[in-house]
């Protein structure tokens, strides 16, 4: 069965992109469509454990990560080199699998659609 990847490359709170990407992922999950999430570039900011968005930033997107299991979203990846580039000292959400370039490229190929936010 085909699997959709939602790829986050935008910073978590700079625009509504990350929020709307997550919304789409949840709907795919609700409709029992296989879906995984992947984070690269500034997108890895969404995975930072220590984030504390204010009301003006919108929803606390990190909180949603722990709820992904209820939407059957089990596969969450991040690009190792971008984690190091954008975040060297903070802890990341524990459910994420970090991938090197090779593994990242292979992971992308296992998806039939990639939608970027």
């Amino acid at each position: 069965m085909q699997k959709t990847l939602i790829l986050f490359s935008s910073s978590a709170y700079e625009t509504t992109s990350a929020k709307e990407g997550l919304d789409l992922a949840l709907v795919l999950g609700t409709f029992e469509q296989p879906v995984s999430l992947a984070f690269s570039g500034e997108g890895v900011s969404l995975l930072l454990e220590s984030q504390s968005p204010e009301k003006e930033h919108g929803k606390h997107l990190y909180k949603l990560l722990d709820g992904l299991e209820f939407y059957d979203i089990d596969d969450v990846y991040a690009l190792q080199s971008d984690i190091e580039l954008y975040n060297s000292k903070h802890a990341l959400w524990e459910g994420v699998t970090s991938l090197d370039q090779n593994a990242w490229a292979k992971m992308l190929q296992t998806h039939s659609q990639i939608i970027r936010f």
């Binding site: 085909q2 919304d23 709907v27 795919l28 409709f31 469509q33 659609q113 939608i115 970027r116």
Partner: peptide
């Protein structure tokens, strides 16, 4: 239409193309 409509398109299409 709701996002459910996209989910349907996404599942029926052979190819999905995004313009961003």
């Amino acid at each position: 239409e709701g996002l459910g409509t996209w989910v349907e398109l996404n599942s029926q299409a052979d190819k999905v193309v995004q313009f961003r």
